[in-house]
C-alpha cells in the first residue's frame, strides 16, 4: 500500500497551485495598499475599515436578508418536495430526483434570462394577468424577482440533501413511533424531522452560501442598482479596479461563511445528541 502514497503528490501540487496560492494572493491584496509592485509592499488594514462604512454595511445586510429569505422559502418548498418524493417506490424516487436536477443541466444564465422574459413588465406573467383584466404588476428589478431567481436556481441544493437523509432513514423507527402511540403529525415532528436534520443543515448551508455570494442573478433580475455582496466584489475587480478592497470583502465573506458553517454543524451535532 505504501508506494500508492506517492500518487497523492500530483494532487498536492495541483491544489497548492490552484487553491493555496490564490488564497494567499487574496490575503496579500487584502492587507496591502494598492498596486501590484512586489518591491515596496505596504501593509494596511484600511481595506477592512472601508467595509464598515454604512453604504457597504447596507449591502452586506441586504445580502444576508435576501439569503435568509431564500433559505426559508427553499427549506419549506424543498422539505415538502423531498418528503413527498421519499414516499414513492425506490425506482420512482430516482426518476423524480433526476427531474429535480434537470434544470441544473442548463446554464444558469439562460435560466435567469428566462425569468427576465417571464417577469418583465410586458412579459408572460403580466400578459396572462392582462387577459384576466388585472393591471400589470412591476416584478422585475425588485426583491421579489431576485428572490424568485435565487429560489429557482438553488432549490435543488436543498431538496437533494434532505431527500438523501429521508431516504436512508430506518423505516422501523417510524413504525416504532406509531407503535408507541404517536400519530402521523407527532411522528413527523418528534422523529422524522429530527432524524433528517443533518440533511436540512447541509441544505441550508449550501443554499445560503450560494445565495449570498452569487452576482449574476441580482445583476440580471435586480437591475444595475441592485447591489449584493457578490456584486460588490465583482465591481471592485471588474469596474472599479480596487483589487485590494475586493479581496478584503471576499475574505470577510469567507470568514462569515466559515463561522456560520461551524455554528450550524455544532447545532446539528448537539441536536442529534440531546434531541433538542
Amino acid at each position: 500500500m505504501r508506494h500508492f502514497k506517492n500518487l497523492v503528490r500530483p494532487y498536492l501540487v495541483w491544489s497548492f497551485l490552484i487553491i493555496v496560492i490564490p488564497l494567499f494572493l487574496i490575503f496579500m491584496y487584502a492587507v496591502t495598499t494598492n498596486g501590484n509592485s512586489l518591491i515596496n509592499i505596504q501593509f494596511t488594514l484600511d481595506n477592512f475599515k472601508k467595509f464598515i462604512e454604512p453604504v457597504y454595511i447596507t449591502v452586506f445586510m441586504k445580502s444576508i436578508k435576501l439569503g435568509a429569505i431564500t433559505v426559508a422559502i427553499c427549506l419549506i418548498l424543498g422539505y415538502a418536495l423531498a418528503f413527498i418524493i421519499s414516499k414513492f417506490k425506490e425506482k420512482t424516487q430516482d426518476i423524480l430526483i433526476l427531474f429535480v436536477t434537470v434544470p441544473m443541466w442548463i446554464n444558469m444564465l439562460l435560466r435567469t434570462y428566462a425569468w427576465m422574459s417571464l417577469l418583465s413588465d410586458n412579459g408572460v406573467v403580466n400578459s396572462l394577468l392582462g387577459f384576466l383584466g388585472i393591471d400589470p404588476i412591476k416584478m422585475m428589478y425588485t426583491d421579489f424577482s431576485v428572490i424568485v431567481g435565487l429560489v429557482c436556481n438553488f432549490l435543488p441544493f436543498m431538496i437533494i440533501p434532505i431527500h438523501t437523509s429521508l431516504a436512508k432513514m430506518d423505516k422501523s423507527l417510524i413504525e416504532a413511533s406509531y407503535d408507541l402511540g404517536a400519530n402521523p403529525v407527532q411522528t413527523f415532528f418528534k422523529v422524522i424531522f429530527k432524524l433528517s436534520l443533518p440533511g436540512v443543515v447541509n441544505g441550508v448551508i449550501m443554499v445560503f452560501l450560494l445565495s449570498i455570494s452569487t452576482f449574476v442573478i441580482p445583476k440580471l433580475l435586480g437591475g444595475g442598482q441592485f447591489v449584493l455582496i457578490g456584486n460588490l466584489i465583482e465591481n471592485q475587480f471588474i469596474s472599479v479596479g480596487d483589487w485590494n478592497f475586493g479581496s478584503a470583502v471576499s475574505l470577510i465573506l469567507a470568514i462569515i461563511i466559515l463561522v456560520l458553517i461551524s455554528v450550524m454543524k455544532k447545532l446539528d451535532i448537539d441536536g442529534m445528541q440531546k434531541g433538542a
Binding site: 422501523s172 423507527l173 413504525e175 416504532a176 432524524l195 436534520l197 442529534m272 445528541q273 434531541g275
Partner: peptide, 9 residues
C-alpha cells in the same frame, strides 16, 4: 422490533 429501532437522537 427485530433491530430494536431505538431513536438515535
Amino acid at each position: 422490533f427485530q433491530k430494536y429501532a431505538l431513536f438515535p437522537h
